[in-house]
């Protein structure tokens, strides 16, 4: 493909499809018709896309922290693939949010070249993030990461499968692509969950402990937020309460193959009357964003 002695050939094109992040960078929705379908409220669609986009972005960030830290090289590569998939989904979803309702995008100094999806990712405070709390916690050990990925990807696969029928063609397309990716994530997590559960005494103990860490936070995924109710009503989104039974059957399968009891730890309560979808987060998110946003915020008119 490229003459490797002249590395600059094809700097702006010709990248083979193997690059996980695709080729068309400048505008993630380039060439896509972002007109709203009849009966779809732009503000509601944007709010909904932020929820799904932030889930992907924050979980991707946590997974990316495994780079150079995974149990083996093969797993380092696998976790990076998953993080890249979710990052791609986040980028599309945040871009969709910005196109549906430009007022959600934080204001930047005049002339700032920062694209809207980056403004959303790097210039919102933690209280404006709409991800569930499940995805924002510190990684913990490999068992905690496995447990979190299992819960999150099982939920997200069920969600994306239904979202393929969204009346918003952009969301439907994002979901169709995402289903293939997340099916793989779920398979990866389920295999590791069973492997650790049935591996050694220590790995079994750690897998149990890992499930106990994340289990209390996963109920939040199925609690219908008013935005999600509107999304389901208007046909562009999915009511998560309707996913709970299906997800539960799948989780039960994995637990039973692994010989694991269902965790009995009580769910983590809301903060006041809200949780992640309302911008009420754990302490971990603020710390995470402080790091994630530090360079971007130091250069609000910077070009990257």
């Amino acid at each position: 493909m490229t003459d490797h002695t002249s590395a600059y050939d094809g700097l702006l094109g010709d990248d083979s499809a193997q690059w996980a992040f695709g080729q068309d960078f400048e505008d993630p929705l380039a060439g896509v018709d972002t007109t709203l379908a009849a009966g779809v409220d732009g503000a509601a669609l944007a709010a909904y896309c932020l929820m799904l986009g932030d889930d992907a972005l924050v979980h991707s960030h946590r997974l990316s922290q495994w780079a150079s830290n995974a149990p083996d090289l093969e797993e380092d590569i696998a976790l990076a693939n998953i993080a890249l998939d979710l990052l791609g989904q986040a980028r599309l979803l945040l871009a969709r949010a910005a196109a549906a309702d430009p007022s959600v995008v934080p204001a930047l100094p005049a002339g700032s070249p920062v694209p809207p999806e980056d403004a959303l990712a790097f210039f919102r405070d933690d209280a404006d993030f709409r991800n569930v709390r499940l995805v924002e916690g510190e990684n913990g050990d490999f068992a905690v990461t496995t447990a979190r990925l299992l819960l999150f990807s099982t939920h997200r696969l069920a969600l994306l499968e239904r979202l393929r029928d969204s009346v918003d063609p952009v969301l439907a397309a994002i979901a169709a692509k995402g289903v293939k990716e997340v099916a793989y994530h779920r398979d990866h997590a389920a295999r590791w969950c069973v492997t650790l559960a049935r591996g050694t005494e220590e790995s079994r103990r750690r897998m149990r402990a890992g499930l106990d860490v994340v289990w209390p936070l996963h109920h939040e995924l199925f609690r219908t937020h008013p935005v999600e109710a509107t999304a389901a009503e208007q046909g562009f989104g999915v009511d998560p309460a309707g996913l709970a039974a299906d997800v539960d059957v799948l989780l039960e399968q994995v637990l039973s193959v692994g010989g694991l009891d269902r965790p009995t730890v009580p769910p983590t309560g809301p903060l006041g009357r809200g949780a992640g979808r309302d911008g009420r987060h754990t302490e971990a998110l603020g710390r995470m964003l402080a790091e994630m946003q530090v360079v971007a915020r130091a250069h609000p008119t910077g070009r990257w």
């Binding site: 093969e74 590569i77 696998a78 693939n81 990866h188």
Partner: peptide, 9 residues
């Protein structure tokens, strides 16, 4: 599984 991740993306 690993081969898919490592060699074929």
């Amino acid at each position: 599984h690993n081969a898919r991740d490592v060699y074929t993306r």
